[in-house]
Write a protein that binds this DNA or RNA. Structure first.
Lengths: 245, 245
DNA sequence: GTCTGTATGTGCGGTGAACCACAAATAGAA
DNA sequence: TTCTATTTGTGGTTCACCGCACATACAGAC
């Protein structure tokens, strides 16, 4: 890896880093670094948006608001992905809200530029499409997970995904916030979390949660984590060599 | 509508019918009509397949086999869609099994031809992409539905989708078969079905189920049916004028 | 008509999570 | 230091679904 490249923060995003150097240089001027605040809405439901986001240190969550008044996560992403695949697939209207779940940085690109690069740059197009396939894989697995697995298993999975994207073992999140993306009660999350705490897998206190035993979490999580991760690695393996996490 | 066109069975598939006439004529020779038997596997998990399918009277189900030994539907389609979007998105490997759920006819196209037309025919490409967006919408809604809604609500939704795709009110399906795609016990399906029967919404007997009161089913179903349908209509509205179902 | 396998109905105990209400702990503001 | 709002813990009840076991009922084969 070239030092100069490493210093460009945009390369912290896996998809941008996956671009061949020539393509990256072409696209780089189209990217603007932005700081995303907690709970900021990047994409309102059914809205046509002007930007696509490539997070680096932020995490974004795709939420659906049910008739029952509950919000549920259908997908989430951080440095491993992007927000706004509907820009090049379909009619640019997302049936979900994209909300910032962990504040941090991202690089954004105008929707028009995305469409143009998508049409003119085969590598960019292929990377976007491959990411879309991993997104489908993730959403599919969420459907399965919601049917089959307990809150505790899902919590483990959620923490592992956060760890992969944020590359830190401590997150600021309350049980309440987690319960909102899971579509379950706060008490159910507290119960699951306290079980994991008793077994020494995590610790937490007043809005801060720390992973103590990642291998233990992996064992306690459902298969869904590995299934999604394997597909991500396989589909994007031609571009991304990493994953020494 | 031109009579001659109506007589081509391939036009019973919404996506093929959506093609401009010139494009359709170009693609038509690449299509082969096939009969799909119940439980036939069109796409094995992780397998690279040589054909993409456009069902006309058959229905196909995307199944995931969990570690627990349960199969669960993540999506399904009939004349409204196609099977094999991974051919043009990503690496052509599907993480699910595509299984025939209602036997019937479909038109298939070689994966190579699909890739070529996708690259050379903008309308075909756009229709495929738009369908992919509706598929994402469907899978997302399944994730939500699995979290929030009862077996009875899901059963109603399932029957409505079958009705839309098959355009018939009687289906041959046992409670057992339904329970397998739902990932629930057979008894749970029986219980839900008997509730709907008591209210005069459906009737059934030994592997045959008939919709008696579609508006009633709509009311008994969860919002998910309408949400997915509205997105399908909206996203493909530029191509498909129909839906007088 | 009888036999048999498939399809559906029913009952019972168990579990995960919902819903409701309130208690305890703690960090930050006053 | 005390107060207050936020975060987390706990208990009791209800509900949907599971898992198991078994009863019925029907259709087709013989």
């Amino acid at each position: 890896m070239v030092k100069k490249q490493e210093e460009d923060e945009a390369l912290q995003n896996n998809l941008l880093a996956a671009l061949p150097e020539a393509e990256f240089k072409k696209i780089r001027p189209l990217l603007t670094e932005v700081f995303l605040d907690l709970d900021e809405v990047l994409w309102e439901m059914d809205e046509k948006r002007r930007f696509v986001y490539f997070p680096t240190t932020a995490m974004i969550c795709l939420l659906y608001d049910s008739d029952e008044g509950v919000s549920i996560e259908v997908g989430m992403t951080g440095r491993q992905g992007m927000v706004g695949v509907v820009t090049f697939i379909g009619d640019s209207r997302m049936a979900k809200r994209a909300v910032v779940q962990r504040e941090g940085k991202a690089f954004r690109m105008k929707a028009d530029d995305v469409e143009e690069e998508f049409a003119n740059c085969p590598d960019f197009q292929d990377i976007c499409m491959c990411y879309t396939q991993t997104l489908i894989a993730q959403i599919s697995q969420n459907a399965i997970c919601n049917r089959l697995h307990t809150v505790e298993q899902q919590l483990c999975r959620y923490l592992l995904v956060n760890h992969d994207n944020l590359r830190t073992k401590t997150f600021s999140m309350t049980h309440e916030q987690i319960s909102n993306v899971f579509g379950v009660r706060r008490e159910s999350v507290s119960l699951a979390a306290s079980g994991l705490k008793d077994r020494g897998l995590i610790e937490y206190s007043r809005g801060t949660l720390t992973i103590l035993d990642r291998p233990g979490l992996l064992k306690a999580a459902c298969e869904c984590y590995e299934v999604v991760r394997e597909q991500y690695d396989r589909i994007l393996s031609k571009y991304i060599k990493i994953h020494g996490a």
